[in-house]
Write a protein that binds this DNA or RNA. Structure first.
Lengths: 217, 217
DNA sequence: AACCAAGCTGAGGGTTTGCTCATATATCTG
DNA sequence: CAGATATATGAGCAAACCCTCAGCTTGGTT
């Protein structure tokens, strides 16, 4: 929405009838499935169309090409995550640092693990060079949401420094990705968000209330 | 080396003469370059051979296919990083927690940013489904190196819990990836490893010296 | 019913890609 | 030098792929 993708990446038209909406959904769903079962290299438009149960011509009525299809999928999935984070962060009125840590981590983690397959598909698809702007944009949204939440935190006096917010968001998103993509560590996944919350609390405290309660100046 | 890849992914033969070694190196180099300039989708064997200045036939004498080429490249780059970490961690004899944090982060960060282009190429290539085992293996090596270093740390009494090591390593590697891949935040990259070190120190302290020096039991 | 968008189909043209193989050159060994 | 081995070449074929288009079906409106 906010971004202006080149024509090559924009959808050709949006579905208006209910049946067409179902078709597009099926195409998205099929794309994610093929991505997971075959990998990005073997993802072909014909294969996606077949898996979606529609003809190849139908696919090309909505998307000008393979890349546009992936672009739309990534855009959709990223937007869902960003919206959930923004909503959750905005809802915290006077959070403690620990609240901030828990809220951000839990929300992000839940958004990702709610449908781990889709999350993995997203990681695969977003490795396409042209998606990087989309990812960047989403990261900025997360950073802004986090920074504004921290600013409403009584323990935080001034505006939180960029490096801290950047580092924190990078570490939460990157760490989660690492765990989700590593099929080996998938077993101890349930405990991960707890550790990640502890880590976040420790970091935020060390960044914002470092001295022993430096009283009012 | 440690892994036993299916024939489809193993190199066909190793170069023995110096000239052949140079050829294989050129192919690797060209692969990384094409990966960065064209992306994984447009990486073709013909294109790589051209960029390397060798004939397509030559490429196929050493690698049975495109995937094997990528596999070998990823294997090489991952091994370099793991070796550097293992070496650095093993060299620390009686480190403090802060030493551990700094050593691991600085070494990993230096290994990645020493050649950021190659690091980015690695991320692109490793998104191929079949590389996940290779990545997993490397992560385990990093975890082991970190765990053994922590065990030699006077502030750490017992063996460090798996969740902590897993979380820490995931966060350092994942966070670094996030920063390296995001071209926007590339500018404040120089400060990132400092924050990451602070974060690591804070986390390790909260995990290992949480109470006020719970004396011997 | 008659009409018109909107939606769907899938064979096939043109292109790209992966890979082979017959041939040629370079390096080594005795 | 002569033979053996290692290395390099690149035209070209089979397969895979992207995408179009002319015609067909479905849903909605009057």
């Amino acid at each position: 929405m906010t971004l202006i993708p080149p024509t090559r990446l924009k959808p050709r038209k949006n579905p208006v009838q209910a049946r067409a909406k179902a078709t597009v959904d099926a195409i998205f769903e099929a794309t994610a499935q093929v991505l997971l079962s075959e990998g990005l290299a073997r993802l072909t438009t014909n294969h996606v169309a077949t898996r979606a149960g529609v003809s190849i011509g139908t696919l090309y009525q909505y998307f000008p090409g393979k890349e546009a299809l992936l672009y739309a999928l990534v855009e959709q999935l990223l937007d869902q995550v960003a919206c959930q984070i923004e909503e959750a962060c905005a809802a915290a009125e006077r959070p403690t640092l620990d609240d901030c840590a828990a809220l951000f981590v839990e929300t992000y983690f839940a958004a990702k693990t709610g449908d781990p397959e889709k999350a993995r598909a997203l990681y695969l698809a977003s490795s396409h060079l042209e998606m990087s702007a989309l990812v960047s944009r989403t990261i900025v949204r997360l950073q802004d949401a986090a920074a504004q939440m921290l600013r409403r935190c009584p323990e935080v006096r001034a505006a939180p420094p960029d490096e801290v917010v950047t580092c924190w968001v990078a570490v939460v998103t990157g760490g989660t990705r690492q765990i989700l993509e590593d099929t080996n560590s998938a077993m101890l996944l349930p405990g991960f968000h707890i550790e990640l919350t502890r880590l976040s609390s420790a970091y935020l405290r060390s960044a914002f209330s470092s001295g022993p309660k430096r009283s009012d100046g």
